[in-house]
Simulated scan of single mutants.
Amino acid sequence: MLEIFSKWKANLTSADLPDQAEEGKLPQHIAIIMDGNGRWAKQKGLPRIAGHREGMKVVTKIVRVASNMGIEVLTLYAFSTENWKRPKKEVDYLLGLPERYLKAELPKLIENNVQVRLIGTTDHLPDHTLRAVEKAVKDTESNTGMILNFALNYGSRYEMLEAVKSIGRLIEEGKLTADSLTEETIHAHLMTSQLNDPDLLIRTSGEIRLSNFMLWQLAYSEFWFTDVLWPDFKEQDFVEAIAVYQKRKRRYGGV
């Protein structure tokens, strides 16, 4: 990872990115709540979908930078279980974005050895969205580079409820006992069971809350909040978040 990071920085000019993030102590897993698309559009007198369209361009940039830096996992909160409450026109557009993004970017993701994964429930997702994501997952399953993990139709409370149900069924079947349950048992039944918990959470737009995102997994993550709206989020902001992370001491309750 350090070698990849060094090569990445060596290929940049001072105008590209600030010289802030240092070698070593890179977060292995970064999760991002991409917030502010609607407000960005409103500020410019544009329809909300214009903000989502611009936000998709930012996804392309940040995925590329994260992969080149040697980040192991990048989880993006693409659509929450609460987003169904939005106007139908906006929901339909949001659920079309994965297909648009992957149609344009899948060849590059394959070329750059990125593996696409998905967490969330497929209930109610349109067929065209599912087909696009499932194709990307299948076409990249043998890739060994960065994992690009989309949280699509995802809600952390739903995830934990399903985990509890699954564990409860095992107890009913006599395959587990209540006294034998551990944190590892719960982790194994979460949608992220094959991933390490995020080291760093980034949320844009000035909101300071988790919005039902990875509530179990973020227990000891470092948080970085910015007022920058997602469509305005740049590679420099991503590097700044990592630089702040690198200065923090992670004690996990110790001293």
Rank of each mutant, 00 (worst) to 15 (best):
44 K>D: 06
107 P>F: 11
178 A>T: 06
132 A>S: 13
76 L>V: 09
16 D>K: 02
173 E>Q: 15
186 I>R: 10
144 T>H: 02
159 E>G: 06
181 L>E: 07
48 R>F: 07
22 E>T: 12
18 P>Y: 04
58 V>A: 03
74 L>K: 01
240 E>C: 02
95 L>G: 07
17 L>C: 05
1 M>C: 02
245 Y>D: 02
202 I>W: 13
228 V>F: 02
163 A>L: 09
74 L>Q: 08
157 R>K: 14
35 D>W: 05
253 G>K: 09
37 N>Y: 09
229 L>W: 04
185 T>Y: 15
220 Y>R: 07
47 P>M: 10
102 L>A: 00
215 L>Y: 04
204 T>R: 09
226 T>V: 01
6 S>N: 08
114 V>W: 00
246 Q>K: 05
36 G>H: 07
202 I>S: 11
122 T>E: 14
43 Q>N: 15
211 S>I: 12
175 K>G: 11
246 Q>F: 05
28 Q>C: 15
103 K>M: 03
147 I>C: 05
106 L>C: 02
23 E>I: 04
116 V>C: 06
162 E>F: 09
237 D>V: 07
181 L>W: 13
92 D>H: 15
143 N>K: 00
42 K>A: 10
67 S>W: 01
183 E>M: 15
167 I>V: 14
30 I>F: 14
7 K>C: 04
92 D>P: 15
46 L>V: 11
68 N>F: 01
208 I>C: 12
16 D>M: 03
98 P>S: 03
201 L>R: 01
91 V>I: 14
192 T>F: 01
205 S>E: 12
233 F>R: 05
88 K>E: 14
202 I>H: 13
184 E>L: 13
209 R>D: 12
96 G>A: 06
148 L>P: 01
159 E>Y: 08
19 D>I: 03
153 N>K: 09
2 L>A: 10
107 P>G: 01
158 Y>P: 13
192 T>M: 06
158 Y>E: 15
99 E>H: 03
180 S>A: 15
129 T>A: 14
31 A>W: 15
146 M>E: 04
123 D>E: 14
104 A>C: 01
41 A>I: 06
133 V>T: 06
194 Q>N: 13
75 T>A: 05
